[in-house]
Structures are given as structure tokens and as C-alpha cells.
Lab assay of single mutants.
Amino acid sequence: MQNSHSGVNQLGGVFVNGRPLPDSTRQKIVELAHSGARPCDISRILQVSNGCVSKILGRYYETGSIRPRAIGGSKPRVATPEVVSKIAQYKRECPSIFAWEIRDRLLSEGVCTNDNIPSVSSINRVLRNLASEKQQMGADGMYDKLRMLNGQTGSWGTRPGWYPGTSVPGQPTQDGCQQQEGGGENTNSISSNGEDSDEAQMRLQLKRKLQRNRTSFTQEQIEALEKEFERTHYPDVFARERLAAKIDLPEARIQVWFSNRRAKWRREEKLRNQRRQASNTPSHIPISSSFSTSVYQPIPQPTTPVSSFTSGSMLGRTDTALTNTYSALPPMPSFTMANNLPMQPPVPSQTSSYSCMLPTSPSVNGRSYDTYTPPHMQTHMNSQPMGTSGTTSTGLISPGVSVPVQVPGSEPDMSQYWPRLQ
């Protein structure tokens, strides 16, 4: 039975679970980093996980050691009161100082060594604690504590007292930064006198190289990059290397530039699409467009005044059976039934097929058609009795279509119309 579990990581490298990497692998990681390889490249070359490479390099940059820390136990506290007071002093002298600059000053002034120097995250935590204590304490208590930490007896009751030896409130920041720059020169002199001055200088240079600022491109470089971006948004590694040799930039910087440029292009394309949609959409909808001609068919113009009344309900007709019959029939052209047409008796099958359309009241044959006459024609229609054979009435077949029909004066039988409509 094995005491430890061995495995293979996602890159194909072998590791022992819970145990640190061998010293030979750690040394190779540092050597590759000094030669300029990126952590992701080191991870692929040595088949070590990216997190492990970053952790080893980060500890090497901070402490200069590649040895693993002790497994188990607690780390001794490195942010001692003396170190905290120095950090507060540096922050007062130059409020814009960075944590890694404070760390360098602690090393250069001999406050800490490589073994007990606090990390950048520890210094940031100390600065946050100082800021929170400043908010919790009152103004007087804060000034007393700062005077105690600074070891001075001057008056701290006013704002300019934060910067000793100065009279203009805006000047101390520059003086403090100048003092810090002077301390940086002392850093070089002190570290050069040490035993491991060369190694420390190499480590600091490598650290500065990794902690780079934003790349500033010249106009020629920007023009070359934009020209390549117009050709393709995704250049391959050969195109990037050719462009890197042409404009004297690292291939990694060119790759990052193209990634950022593609993101910018997507944002601009989104804005262009929004403007295009806004320009195509009308600002207001016309009133006429809300009524579609496919839904509402136009009603033909009436030929006679009587045809303006298109349904039985508008003429005072309360018989719903006839109203439904007229509205359900398709529109037909106007025609006239003459008196000489043969009077065919209704076929029983045809009569039964339209039995649902006729009223059940037996008085329908005896009703006159003056009910369908509009009010303004009552006088004219009353002067001509319906009993004469020459009287013409208008029957409504569908809305908007008038059918003048000659009705025999002897017997106005409704059943004569249905064979004609089939």
C-alpha cells in the first residue's frame, strides 16, 4: 500500500499530492522566468500547473527564495509595531506611495530583511487598517496617535501638521516623493554593498519588468496595427511575429492590442446598429396606417339613396333571421326581375335548405315592403301603392349592394327569390 497518492495534472505532468515540487523543477521555473518566458509558457514547457508556477515565482520575487514554506503551523507575524509605524510614516510623507514602493524602502533602510519582509498584500492590509482606524477615531485622537508614531512633539492640530517642515499644504506631496526618490538612490547604494547585491538587483529588475506600465504606442505603430486590423481581426502567430519585427513591439503586446481592438470594434458596431435601427424607425405612426385595407374592405359607393341603408337594423327591421341572411350572402350585381318571367313554384328541397333563413311567422307573405323604405322617402312611396304591378321595390342582398326588384302586385311571395340566388 502506497503512503502517498501520485497523479497526472491537466498538462500531463506527474505530481505527488500534498508534497511540494522538487527543487530542480523550481530552479528551472526561475531560470525560464529570467530568460523572459511568460508564466503560461513555463507552465506548458515544464508541465506544471499555472497556479503552481505563479505561486513559486511570486514567492521568489518577494523573498528571493525558491524553497517551499513549512507545511503546517502558523507563519510568524511580520507586521510588527515597528514595521507598522514605518509604513504609516512613509504614507504620511508621500500619500500616493504604492505598497511595493513601501516594501522596497523597508528593505533599503534595513527595517526588514528578506526573511521577515511583509508581502505587498500585508502592507496593503496595514494601510487599510490605518485608514479604518482613522475613520473610527476622532480628529484629536487621530492626531495624537500619528504624533506618537512619528515621534515628534510638534502641533498636529492642523492639517499642514501632517507634513512636517512644510508650510504650503500643496507642497508636502512633492517633497515626500522627492525624499522617497532619494531613498531609492540609497536603495541602490545599500544593496550594492550587501553580499547578495547582484541577486537582489536582478530580482528587482525582473520584478519591475513584470510590473509594467501601460504600453505607449507611437503613431507609426498605431498606423501599422490599424492597417493589419483592417486586413483581418484575428491575425495568426506568423502575422503577429512579422508585425512585431516590423514595428519593434513584443508579440504578446500585439496580441493584447488586437484583443482590445476587437472589443472596441464590437462596441462601435453595436452603436452603429442602434443608430441604423433608430433612423429606419419613423418618429410617429401615421393615422391612416393604423387601418389596414386588408382588414377593412372598402364599401362601394351607393348608386341610389335607398342603398345607403345596408342592414335591417338601420331600417328599423327587427327580424334577425333576414338580417343574418342578407349579411351572409355574397355580393351580387344589380339585376331586375321582369313581370314576364315565369313564376316557378319553389322546389321543396330548395325551400327546406333555406328554411332556417325565413321567419317562422306566416304573415311574411302579407307584409308590405314599406318597412324598408327610409324616412325621407315615405311620402313618395305612399303616393304609389304597392298593389300595382309596376311598383318597384329595392331588396338588399349584402352591405353596400342594392338590387332593384320588380315585385308582382298580386302576391309578394318571398319564396320566388331563392331559386334565382343559387
Rank of each mutant, 00 (worst) to 15 (best):
K86T: 09
Q47Y: 07
I29G: 03
R67L: 08
G36S: 05
N114Y: 09
N50K: 15
L149P: 15
S121N: 00
G64E: 02
N150W: 07
N3F: 12
I71E: 01
A33M: 10
I42L: 02
E109Q: 11
Y143H: 13
V14M: 10
G13C: 00
L130K: 15
G64L: 05
G51E: 05
Y61T: 07
R26N: 02
K134M: 12
D104M: 11
D104L: 14
L11S: 04
D104S: 10
V126C: 09
P76R: 07
S121V: 05
Q89R: 14
R128G: 04
Q136N: 14
K91W: 02
G36H: 05
S4W: 10
M142D: 08
G72L: 03
N17P: 15
V53R: 00
S132F: 10
V84Q: 07
S74C: 03
S132T: 12
T113H: 14
N116L: 11
P68R: 02
V84G: 03
G36D: 07
R26L: 01
L46Y: 01
L106M: 07
N116A: 11
G141C: 13
T80I: 06
Q47N: 02
T113D: 11
D140A: 13
N17W: 15
I66C: 07
C52S: 09
S108V: 12
V48E: 02
I29P: 01
N9D: 01
L149I: 09
E93A: 08
Q47R: 15
S43W: 02
T63A: 03
N50I: 06
V8A: 03
Q135Y: 10
V30M: 05
R19Q: 04
L32K: 03
I97Y: 15
P39V: 15
I56T: 01
G64Q: 03
M148Q: 14
P20H: 02
E31H: 07
K86S: 09
S4T: 12
V78S: 01
T80N: 05
T25Q: 08
R92Y: 15
S54Y: 08
N114S: 11
T25M: 07
R59T: 05
D115A: 15
V84Y: 05
K145T: 10
S96C: 06
D23C: 10
C112G: 06
I45G: 07
S49I: 00
M142Q: 12
Y60R: 02
S6T: 14
S122K: 14
P81Y: 07
Y60A: 00
N50A: 15
N124A: 06
Q2H: 12
V8Q: 06
I87N: 01
S43I: 00
P95A: 12
R19T: 05
N150D: 13
H5L: 09
K28E: 08
P22I: 02
S96H: 13
N124R: 11
G51I: 00
L46P: 02
M137E: 10
T113G: 12
Q10Y: 02
G36P: 03
Q136I: 11
N124H: 14
C40N: 05
R128T: 02
A33L: 06
S119W: 06
D140P: 12
C94W: 10
C52R: 00
S122C: 05
N9V: 02
S85G: 11
C40K: 07
P68G: 00
K86D: 00
Q136R: 13
N150Y: 04
G12S: 03
S4H: 11
M142N: 08
